[in-house]
Write a protein that binds this DNA or RNA. Structure first.
Lengths: 337, 337
DNA sequence: CCAACCTGCATCATCGATGGAGCAACATTG
DNA sequence: CAATGTTGCTCCATCGATGATGCAGGTTGG
């Protein structure tokens, strides 16, 4: 049949009439517990056949209304425009489906109001769990979830009111800094402090990465230049502006850099390309995040790839243990190539 | 209140009791048509206040069950691992919300069975519209949608049974080829045919792009080399393997290339880096797709950026006009920087 | 002073799926 | 042959929100 307009939806009552039986029997057969309800195999087969012929699909809205568990799991995510978040949502979907859950995802464009609105909307859809990824105010969302009878969990950025799974930012940054310092020495012959650029000074991850950055310098006995720590925000333009300002102020810019995300790296690379400040000498970069094209950008870029499967495995572990009591912080080490 | 465990959900009946009124009044007030139903402003304010105090959120399952329109719009998308699809889902969400719709998205990992399963699941959730992005078998999905009373629309790859919005692959490829041929001539002094690499020969977009590729060569009077059209699939490894095979077979590889997606480009660039076949001379590339880091990879890469906002505007136009009858194909020109 | 009308709500059936309870019809046991 | 058990269903209340209908109590017009 090649109908143009969508037809009305088939319900279990329609199927019941076609099979000359009751809606209850149809329901039992189609949701699989017909053995328990002592429906004959004969009738079960008949109903199954008719349902398939009619292209029947349960009305989840009705089904969920009746049941106690929705099996819906929500995730909010800031953006889809980089490999890290892309990988998070993709892995999340796969792992959720493997566990018989229905994932719904929404991006909040780093807008705190949208985060809250998105959380409320998801709660209206009866999510059982809500994972806040990189949320600006995760505790706010946890409060809303608790009030609405849902569990919550923080990913990427931690909160204090729900369990959190994040990268081991301190150890990762320390190792990345160490590697970059050594790369810099190998290339230039001198050991000199790196520039830290990107991220918000107010967020936990950036603060921890700066801490790792400091300690790595200390480990190698390299003094830090305080004015070379630029937590100027994540946007590419912010990074480019910060570099311009520094170049104007100091007349030059360090060749070795710790860049706090691929997003910021985009701005850094653009600025370097368009500016004479490095005199064509390629920068020596450590980037906290991974992108396949960045790997092709030059030999002198080291990346710390956040362990997305590891993080989500930890997240689903928590959620399978039902754990709200565990207000713990789980830190997953990033991966070096 | 800082409770640990989620509490039970508040319903309009709870609110009605707290406000000493009926559930019907609560419902009318909270969904905004209380004026029509002649509820006093006083009572409306009281109910609103109590609802806020209790952190009430409607149960969409119940609400949707009762209403005829779900306002849910679904999208299936192959992957989240590149800027094109990332931009599509992000723009889709924004535009859907602007129109008062609730977007749900699912990725299908380019798996035909998963596509069908995802479509069925979405239909269970009562989507009114389903947008199939880059689907391997869009007509199958349209059939399923029609049987279940939903509308469908194809994006990125066309189908024959529902309206389709895609890039103008022919014109885009023709222009990209023209530009790349000219770039090649400028750099090398000679006008010589390009290598076409990436994509599936069986998909409409690749076929159209190859057609544009041919016509552009013809336009400039450059003969094509048939064995230099390699629709080897999208995966990076496939592209790398195809190049290796060609190099082994012919002893060399053209310096000018038309690469049919950033995904394939990843493999191409990796191969070039690891292989001596170009003797360090940078390739001259036209890439049908856009990525910010690719722009930084070299001066000799021209990109055709698919006009995602334009495509989705066209898609939402169709869907606002309710149009199923319009089985038309809308082609949106890609953008050159 | 009564009909007609308006205001401000409450009652109740309904959406589709679900599962506890109940009920025939038949089989088995002592 | 009555008592008991088993098989194979059906009936009905229920989940929460919605809106048509109805119904008091007050107001207005003639």
């Amino acid at each position: 049949m090649n109908q143009q307009r969508p037809q009305k939806k088939t319900t279990i009552y329609d199927l019941a009439e076609l099979a000359a039986t009751s809606a209850s029997a149809v329901s039992a057969v189609l949701n699989g517990n017909w053995k328990k309800r002592r429906i004959s195999t004969q009738l079960a087969e008949k109903i199954t056949r008719i349902a398939e012929e009619q292209g029947y699909a349960v009305n989840m809205q009705a089904s969920l209304l009746r049941r106690d568990k929705s099996k819906i799991i929500g995730m909010i995510v800031p953006k889809y425009d980089n490999r890290y978040f892309g990988s998070i949502v993709e892995t999340f979907e796969i792992m959720a489906r493997e566990r018989g859950l229905f994932p719904i995802i929404t991006c909040t464009l780093r807008d705190p109001d949208l985060e809250v609105e998105a959380a409320r909307t998801m709660l209206s859809y009866q999510v059982e769990w809500l994972i806040s990824t990189g949320a600006t105010n995760p505790d706010r969302i946890t409060d809303i979830c608790l009030a609405a009878g849902a569990h919550s969990l923080n990913l990427d950025l931690p909160g204090t009111k729900a369990p959190s799974v994040i990268s081991d930012n301190f150890a990762g940054a320390r190792e990345l800094t160490r590697r970059t310092l050594i790369n810099h020495q190998r290339k230039t012959g001198v050991m000199s402090p790196l520039l830290f650029i990107g991220g918000r000074g107010s967020d936990h991850n950036t603060a921890e990465r700066i801490r790792g950055f400091r300690v790595a310098h200390q480990d190698l006995g390299v003094p830090i230049e305080e004015q070379h720590i630029l937590a100027c925000g994540y946007a590419p333009e912010k990074a480019a502006q910060a570099l311009s300002a520094m170049a104007a102020r100091e007349g030059s810019v360090p060749r070795g850099m710790f860049v706090n995300s691929t997003i910021s790296l985009e701005g850094v690379m653009r600025w370097i390309k368009s500016s004479p400040h490095l005199n064509g000498a390629p920068p020596i970069i450590g980037c906290f995040d991974w992108d396949p094209f960045v790997a092709l950008l030059g030999q002198d870029i080291e990346m710390a790839r956040q362990d997305v499967p590891g993080m989500l495995t930890a997240a689903f572990d928590i959620l399978e243990k039902g754990g709200d009591d565990t207000r713990n912080l789980i830190e997953i080490p990033p991966i070096f190539a």
